[in-house]
Design a protein around this nucleic acid. Structure first.
Lengths: 118, 118
DNA sequence: GCTGCAGATCGACCGCCATCGATCTATGTA
DNA sequence: TACATAGATCGATGGCGGTCGATCTGCAGC
């Protein structure tokens, strides 16, 4: 995995010893960091996190009409949050007649999971 | 774990069958969701995610003077991001003379990790 | 004391985001 | 065809967040 953060040379110190051990740098490249941060950002709202929680727990697809009454916000707001989650690739949807069913996109959280575990 | 999201009764349908299976609800309580969403939100920025990545990788404590030149933003901005991470309980700091050393707070990510794994 | 440095804080700017009411689209039903 | 419903979209609003330059706070050395 390439590191695209260039290291600036260690700045000179007036007189004293160096402040710390040799330079450290992230082994997470910028693009990867941006992808994972986008996932984390999408999960960074209590409503969206609970939406994902419900969808993950419920293996199948869940109707929006089941999701909306779970929260103390209006229907457009829930729709907005679902859209954010879909843009982040975390969930996907499927229309069946009058209703829309949402489900978690299987591999969406994988990269972030692996990083978070270590 | 208590669920403090009250379920509103299923709204009546004009004529047809119900849209889907019985009501689902999050088993993640609101307070827990807010805690984990706060952690996710703190990780929802590429710079902060890379900061955490460096600190986790480097088991010991890392001097701020090592962290600042890793990114293309100014020193106040890095300081701000470190403050956000500290407010979220993800990192902590320790001053030694002229320099400040940051390190990951061990159990900070635990609850979020456990939820994310399943 | 004075000077220099590391890092935190402040104030301002600007853009993004959560939320709402209103409206639009598409589907099903009479 | 007309109407009702599920859900998405629009426009507005208020607040939060990332970034910067400037400044402040401590610490070390002279």
């Amino acid at each position: 995995m390439a590191v695209d953060l260039q290291l600036s040379p260690k700045q000179k110190r007036g007189a004293g010893e160096p402040c710390c051990e040799p330079v450290v740098y992230p082994d997470v490249a910028r693009q990867q960091a941006e992808r994972m941060a986008a996932v984390a950002k999408a999960l960074g709202d209590p409503i969206r996190l609970q939406l994902v929680d419900v969808l993950r727990k419920h293996a199948g697809k869940v109707c929006v009409c089941e999701l909306t009454p779970l929260f103390d916000v209006g229907q457009p707001t829930v729709s907005h949050h679902l859209k954010v989650l879909r843009r982040a690739g975390i969930v996907d949807s499927e229309r069946q007649g009058l209703w829309a069913y949402y489900y978690v996109h299987p591999d969406a959280l994988e990269e972030f999971q692996h990083w978070l575990i270590r």
